[in-house]
Every structure is written in C-alpha cells, then in structure tokens.
Amino acid sequence: MLGIETIILTLLMIGIGGVLICTGVFFMPVGGAPAAMSTATGIATGCEMMATGAGITGLLMSAALYGQPSYIIALNAGISSAIMMCVTMFVANLVVVFGKGVPPALATVDRDPVTKEPVKPYVTPGTVGHGVPTASFVSGFIGAFLGGIGGALTFIPIFRVAFYESLTPSASINPMEILGPLGVRVGVEHVPLFVLAGIGALAMYFVNANIAAYSIRGVIEGWWDPKFKRLPKTALTCFVASLVFGTLVVLLLNSDSFIQVLHMIGGGS
C-alpha cells in the first residue's frame, strides 16, 4: 500500500494538471476547419489535436528531464510546448499572409487587446477573422505553456511513484521524493515505466482536452472571446474527471501484481 500522503499528492498533482490542461485549451486560438479556409481566426485544426500536440511535446520534455526537480521539469515542459505552438502559429501566419494574401484579423473585438491596433476593418465580410493576430499569438503561447505544465504534472507522479516502488517498499515512499530531484540511477530496465507514465498522461490529456473542446464547440480566439466565460465550470468538471481517472492510476500503482513486477525489474540494480 502507498502512504496516504503519497496518494493525496499524486491525486492533487493529476487534478491540478487536468485543470491546467483545460485552461490551456481555452487560451489557444482554435480555428478548426474554417481556419483552413481562412474564414476564422486561429490555427487550422481542432482543439483536441492542438492540445494533444502541445501535451505530447510537454511529455517528451518531461521524459527527457526525468531526473530533475519537479518544478524544472514542469517549467521546461511548458516552455517546449510553447515553442512548438509558437512555431506552428508563425508558420500558419506565413502561409496565410504570404501564401493566401489575407491579413490576420480578429472579429470579436474592435481593437487588438495587446497592441491596441484596430483589427476589425480587415475582416472580410461573411467571415469571422483570419490568421493568427498578435493577441491570439500571445494567447496561444500562454495556452501551450499551461498545457505543457499540465502534461508534466500528470507525468511526474505516475513515473516517480512507479519508479520508487521498484526500489523500496511502497509504504516508505516519501512524498517529497516525488517533487525533488531523482537521486538514483535509472537503468534500461526502467524504460517500461516511462512508457507507462507516458500512456497514462496521454490518456488523462485526452479526457481533459475533450471536456474543454466540447465546451468551446469549435472556434475560440483567446481570452477576450465570450466563450472564455465558460472556463470556471469546465475547469471544475476537468478537476473532477481528473480525480476519477487519477483514482484509477492510483489503483493500478497500488495493485500487488504490479508492485511484484516492479520489484522484479528494480531488484537487479
């Protein structure tokens, strides 16, 4: 059995991770299919795929930096996701501006919330904006940053708890070890734990990104969009859903057959 503090910390990290993933999706300029035709503001893909892209980048970074203290992993995962999203938005803008000859524009506000430039006059009649304007770019940066941190917060507890379970009796895991740096050598026999944590975090990512995607229903521009007001309710739902699926993860980490296998792979080192 895991200690009660470890269980609470794991659930809390997964729950906060879920809320951050949901908030991140709300910040991203999601254009969906209309954006592919430059008839809506944002990147030309659905919420879920964009959130997954940002999340997987964050997970890759968390897996690469597994040995660092948690806050470094989380920050780096957020930065890597944000870089990925910025490159995506920049290239999308290049295509829209120089390929299609359409100026980036917002439809829901008269002036750009960041640069205060008038943006409404550039909207073609019959459409709801084009490309990724400055404010949407900043919003997308924040969203991907939060999403990456959320992904890392889901990855860290699953990996760390499973890793320490393979070394020590599970009751003696100190919760601070989950947050601090990893002082033990990780061998090739521990690779399956990365896969386990990655798949678990990916599953949590899908569960949370979908709730946010259903709440947004297709298109959102950024934090000034009227749909952004739905965030508190959606975040609460994501927290509950994360706790439910986090409980499943804790059940898996607590099962005897799983712990026996972990001892088998950890016993060699």
């Binding site: 659905g46 795929m49 949590m204 995607a213 297709g218």
Partner: peptide, 13 residues
C-alpha cells in the same frame, strides 16, 4: 463541434 475522432480518443483514453 469537435469532430468524431475526439470521441474515439476520449473512449480509448
């Protein structure tokens, strides 16, 4: 509003 694939990913998640 998000396409059918989101449902499949949600269920397998």
């Amino acid at each position: 509003g998000t396409g059918v694939p989101s449902i499949g990913n949600l269920s397998s998640g």
